[in-house]
Design a protein around this nucleic acid. Structure first.
Lengths: 136, 136
DNA sequence: CTACAATCTGTAGTCACTACAGGTTCAAGA
DNA sequence: TCTTGAACCTGTAGTGACTACAGATTGTAG
């Protein structure tokens, strides 16, 4: 098990997170500041890699930076319980479900508009009519 | 049919769009600049009301400002065809469907995590394990 | 030793608002 | 008419989660 040392470019390629974003995560305190070379270039080890993968995975699941910070604090402090983590995840899950519901409504409304519209060369358009109706 | 004159506050209450947002829409050229009183207060008529309702309705359907501008230009120029409007709406509908799909994936992943987690007082947590796995 | 790729910092831009600060105008009551 | 206070004005800065530079420095392969 040799210690791997990664430049920011390599880390970026390995994780698919782009360089500016990595630096941004460091700046806002989400990703731990790594060691530096004499010249000031960042040098990451496997802990940095692990942390960034965690962040990327959480983002992929739609967690906000704020939520990730709180999960991450919990975990790195080593004080978390399974219960707490589960509860934060459930809260987020219900947010996601709310968003899905609202998008479904939009989808339905849009699909109805498209269906009602004749799609011809005229200006007699059900979509325009509906969007401009004066009823509030 | 009497000409109605509305202050920005009344317009805001009628449409549910807040005052700052109305001024913002004007600034970015989405909403036509209304007449002013001698003292400089905005005075809207029924055209302004109609236009703002249209904007609000489009935003409610998830159209971006850019999309609304382009729809709105088409319509106010009077050069639109039903076909064009329908096609823009369809493009947007397919964006919405893409978003729904991606949120569904999130939902599934999160639900699985929550289910696998025991939720106890221990630190043996399936969620943490999964999020910290080193597999990229 | 040179060339050039990679990295550095810092700032500004994105989207669609929202939230002030500090000033002016309007409308209703005395 | 005067006064009060609500409503309005402009302009700027902040939000979230990045992205896109500019201009300088460092690292490395040939």
């Amino acid at each position: 098990m040799k210690r791997q040392k990664l430049t920011i470019g390599t880390l970026s390629r390995e994780t698919g997170v782009n360089i500016e974003t990595i630096r941004y995560y460091e700046k806002i305190g989400l990703l731990a500041a790594p060691e530096r070379t004499e010249g000031g270039h960042r040098v990451y080890d496997s802990d940095g890699l692990k942390q960034l993968i965690f962040i990327r995975r959480c983002r992929g699941l739609g967690f906000s930076i704020e939520e990730i910070l709180s999960l991450s604090d919990l975990v790195t402090a080593g004080t978390y319980t399974c219960e707490e983590v589960q509860s934060k995840t459930e809260v987020h899950l219900s947010d996601v479900r709310t968003k899905i519901k609202s998008l479904r409504k939009m989808e339905h409304a849009l699909a109805t508009l498209v269906k009602e519209c004749e799609g011809g060369k005229t200006q007699d358009c059900a979509i325009v009519d509906t969007l401009f109706e004066l009823r509030v």
